[in-house]
Design a protein around this nucleic acid. Structure first.
Lengths: 206, 206
DNA sequence: GCATAATGCAAGCAAGCACTTGCATTATCA
DNA sequence: TGATAATGCAAGTGCTTGCTTGCATTATGC
């Protein structure tokens, strides 16, 4: 039972990896088991022997993505002493994650209503942890006197992740308009957001 | 040639209408010509007689949506004297449009990379006009002294539409978390945005 | 070296898909 | 009424899909 662990694992892993790419590239319906198997370099039958259905394979992919995100979030230690620097760190990390999983995120946005249980899973394991971490950070900054106390924190958190998500969607579209750089967007938008929620509203100098 | 105009038009229109719903509900690949025809109450063959292919039908749908949005935008006359009220009007109108076309927007986000020419069309005919209108409004407010002059306006515009889009995606998801109302989100987020870009940064009282 | 488990391969199945064809039926309008 | 155009209907074509079956081949660990 121990002997085959390695090869089997590498085979399964290669399949999950390939499936992640093909699902992201072709969509849930557009991805075919034939193409996934080909991209993984294994026979299509092997795919069905490991995961019994295409749906099972998709679940394995999502589980892997969720686990990776959990690690990313756990590694994040934002600067609590510099309010704006901490926010920027959240924004950069969140943005990096968005770009890394772009294809899957697009696909899930598109198919969320058709696979509700799937959307719920990914939400509970990805979005909720981010929300709570960020909300906790803002609460800390409130008690430190940096952030206004009359804010609805859940709204602020969703607004923050919201304009970052939208930025990713725009930048990775085939039609991106290119009148500012990604870095410029991050700095400017997070700056305005910070300016909007902080206590002492000193004007930001460019 | 005049005689059949009505019935033909009504038939074509019913097909486009049904197609819009089915495409939105099932996705570009998931939507079948059979179901579209059934939902329109006509025979599947009739569909192929009017539009020669599924792709043509999709184009007709997008054209209709784009035209409708052009009208919506033309009707919008934001209050230029009250900066925040004008912003809120933009937000409400934009939000209404987002909710009306939710399904299609989701689908297009999901499939943008697989149908680039399609994404480009819809962008040029929908997103760009919004961007320019909003940017013009902000420029006006800058000269009126209400908005800071050291802002990168394209970023501001995309940030604004961005957190509104993301809010719609969240609210219409099967897993919406429900810890604030749609109205509350609008008021709070637009408030923070306004607070972030305006010249005199008076604290907003709840 | 040998049993056992994993993989490959060729073929196929049943279903669903976009799209077509041929013909009967209905509505339109002069 | 009668020609013409639009629609309905039944059937079918060729392709792709997820998934299965049977059997040969390879690797693994004792």
């Amino acid at each position: 039972m121990e002997r085959s662990k390695d090869s089997e694992k590498s085979c399964k892993r290669r399949l999950v990896e390939a499936a992640r790419e093909v699902f992201a590239r072709e969509g849930l319906k557009g991805a075919t088991t034939r193409e996934i198997a080909r991209e993984a370099g294994v026979n299509e039958v092997t795919l069905f022997r490991h995961f019994e259905s295409k749906a099972n394979l998709l679940n394995a992919v999502l589980k892997q993505v969720a686990d990776r995100q959990t690690l990313t979030l756990a590694d994040l230690q934002p600067d609590a002493d510099d309010f704006r620097a901490g926010l920027m760190e959240y924004a950069r990390t969140y943005g990096r994650m968005l770009y890394a999983d772009e294809g899957l995120i697009r696909t899930l946005i598109g198919e969320a209503n058709r696979y509700p249980e799937l959307a719920e899973t990914i939400t509970h394991r990805c979005a909720v942890p981010w929300r709570e971490s960020l909300q906790q950070y803002l609460r800390t900054q409130q008690t430190a006197g940096n952030v206004r106390k009359n804010l609805v924190l859940p709204v602020m958190v969703d607004m923050f992740t919201g304009f970052l998500l939208a930025a990713m969607l725009r930048q990775t579209s085939p039609w991106k308009t290119e009148d500012y750089t990604e870095h410029e967007y991050l700095a400017e938008s997070v700056g305005v957001f910070a300016c909007g929620i902080e206590t002492t509203n000193q004007q930001k100098r460019k």
